[in-house]
Amino acid sequence: MPGRTVSVIHFSVILPAAGRSTRFGGGELKKVYVPLHGQPVWLHSAKRFATRPDVRGVVVVISPDDEVYFCEQFADVCDQLGIQIALGGETRTDSIANGIRALNSPGEFIAIHDAARPGIDDAMIDAVFNTAAGSGAAILALPVPGTLKRVSIEGKIVETVPREGVWEAQTPQVFRRQLILEAYEKFGNEPATDDASLVERLGHPVSVVRGGLKNLKITTKDDLVVAEQLLADVS
């Protein structure tokens, strides 16, 4: 009796790396290019996704200002890993849209992961991929542990915000391809700090999967120090 054919779900991954790194502080290198355990920040997560059998393609979205530098420094490793490059736009949503358009043969799902989150691991990716495959949309996130204060521009507390049910979004954020394409078509010109918020505007529920502390986003030099410690045991 012949065995049944197992359907494999494929994912494509967009890594936005076109930000200005203004909060990271001075220096010649933007945060995504700073060395972290022997390789640039962006390459940690790029390798993690590019070597997965369920990932069909990885696109790194870089600033047009960085194109010459990026190609000089990383063309070989991109060729080895099959990583594509796209140029960013005026806004984050423009950059993501450019990355989606650059995909040669996109999978059924598109995952968007901050290039400045080098601590992502296979267990977190497995969890959010599997959840998205069942619900159509899923993100990693962590419940907010501390007390939240809303503060005025004068530096005075306005109110204490209840933290029950409040989570901090992480990435990857993973969506059925047609769903994220529709969200970008309808709302891509509107302000949005993450991609899930665009899908939410469609009225489609987005599942939340617990992420991890080591999946922090590097924003400042202090974050880089923390990442060095958290990833010390990662080869």
Rank of each mutant, 00 (worst) to 15 (best):
G134A: 15
E190W: 03
R150H: 12
I139D: 02
V144K: 07
Q173T: 07
T160I: 11
R163L: 00
R163M: 01
Q170G: 10
M124D: 05
F175R: 03
R177P: 06
L179K: 08
T193Q: 01
E164S: 12
A183I: 07
G155Y: 10
T171F: 09
R163G: 03
Q170L: 15
H204M: 00
S207W: 07
Q173W: 01
I153H: 12
D194T: 03
V158G: 11
P191V: 03
P191R: 05
H204G: 04
R177Q: 12
L142D: 07
E182I: 08
A141F: 00
G146P: 00
L142Y: 00
A169F: 06
A133R: 14
D194Y: 07
R201E: 02
I180K: 10
F187V: 01
H204F: 14
T193C: 06
V174W: 04
L142G: 02
T147W: 05
A127E: 06
W167V: 12
E185K: 14
A183V: 04
A183C: 09
E185H: 15
K156Y: 11
V144Q: 08
P191D: 02
P205K: 08
P191Y: 08
G165H: 13
I180L: 12
N189K: 14
S197F: 00
S207R: 09
P143V: 00
A137K: 11
A132S: 13
T171A: 14
K156M: 09
G155Q: 09
I157N: 13
I180W: 03
E159C: 13
F129N: 09
Y184N: 08
P143C: 06
P145D: 06
V208T: 14
R150M: 13
T171V: 08
A138L: 10
A192D: 02
G134W: 02
P145T: 04
R176V: 01
V161T: 07
E168P: 03
I125P: 05
T160R: 13
A137M: 07
A169E: 05
T147V: 05
